[in-house]
Nucleic acid binder design. Structure first.
Length: 267
DNA sequence: CATCAGGCGAGAC
DNA sequence: GTCTCGCCTGAT
């Protein structure tokens, strides 16, 4: 076990903010996560976070995954002092971080997220993983499932996808999995692209529109200038920013601020 | 019973 | 380019 201190880390907020559908509260001050092909448990007391892993695993995987090198307090401090709403939102969600999640997993997860609620999104993803993901076991005997590969979802029967409760998104997932598996689109090139180019490329995937592409850019590719606009954000923008959100002021931090606005509106 | 949940694709214009 | 419409499913 390994303990780290960080005033801008809240495992609960990371779970609740709905960017990561495979992290959940699994006990008092305790959280479980499947990512990077691994199962991780962590616990948190105030600003003290304990990761159930070795120093090597933390340094090699989780430090980057949870974006621990970025100073979120500094980003929050850069907010316009006159923007009291954004300051309140950031104060409320100051423990949120933009994770470095798997690209393929985010593509499928956010296709599922459309016209859907977080609880049901989690359920759909859980069923997909249990049905099509590889089963694994930790040294402590905890059984978990990897996220399904493009191949396994490409080969899945559409009616079986429907049976996972995906609804009309089943078709989207079927076609997108086939596009990726057969190399119609090369996901690796997205890393070299800037935000606009990557977004344009992602939208070629069936079931990926403007909003889903922005989520993939932000939560997988870590293009923090991506600013996903959903029903919540549109409502907030209309009410709080009738002249438009000041993207020119916040630039690369816009996506992080979007998360504060989104999470603040969920409450 | 209607509406809504972190939209999207297809078709009309 | 912009607009409208239908869409799986479960919760309220």
């Amino acid at each position: 076990m390994l303990t780290v201190k960080n005033k801008n880390f809240s495992a609960l907020q990371i779970c609740m903010s709905g960017q990561c559908f495979r992290m959940e509260k699994c006990g008092e001050n305790r959280y479980c996560l499947v990512a990077q092909g691994k199962y991780l448990e962590l616990s948190q007391q105030g600003d003290s976070i304990s990761f159930d892993c070795t120093q090597e695993e933390y340094d090699g995987i989780w430090k980057k995954y949870f974006d621990m090198e970025t100073d979120y307090a500094e980003i929050i401090a850069s907010i316009d002092e006159n923007d009291t709403y954004l300051i309140a939102a950031a104060e409320y969600g100051k423990g949120i971080r933009i994770l470095y999640q798997d690209l393929w997993e985010m593509i499928i997860s956010f296709i599922i997220s459309q016209q859907n609620n977080i609880k049901r999104i989690r359920k759909c993803i859980k069923r997909l993983c249990e049905k099509y993901g590889e089963q694994r076991k930790t040294v402590n005997g905890v059984i978990y499932f990897d996220f399904p590969t493009p191949e396994s979802l490409a080969e899945a029967r559409i009616e079986d996808l429907y049976a996972c409760g995906l609804g009309y998104r089943s078709q989207y997932i079927h076609r997108t999995a086939n596009s990726v598996y057969h190399g119609d689109i090369n996901l690796e090139v997205l890393w070299q692209m800037d935000y606009d180019a990557a977004k344009k490329e992602l939208i070629k995937l069936h079931g990926v529109g403007v909003k889903v592409a922005d989520c993939i850019c932000l939560f997988a590719l870590h293009k923090t200038d991506a600013f996903p606009r959903d029903t919540h954000i549109n409502k907030v923008l209309a009410a709080q920013y009738p002249e438009g959100f000041p993207f020119e002021k916040y630039g690369k931090n816009s996506g992080i601020l979007q998360q504060y606005l989104f999470y603040y509106d969920l409450k």
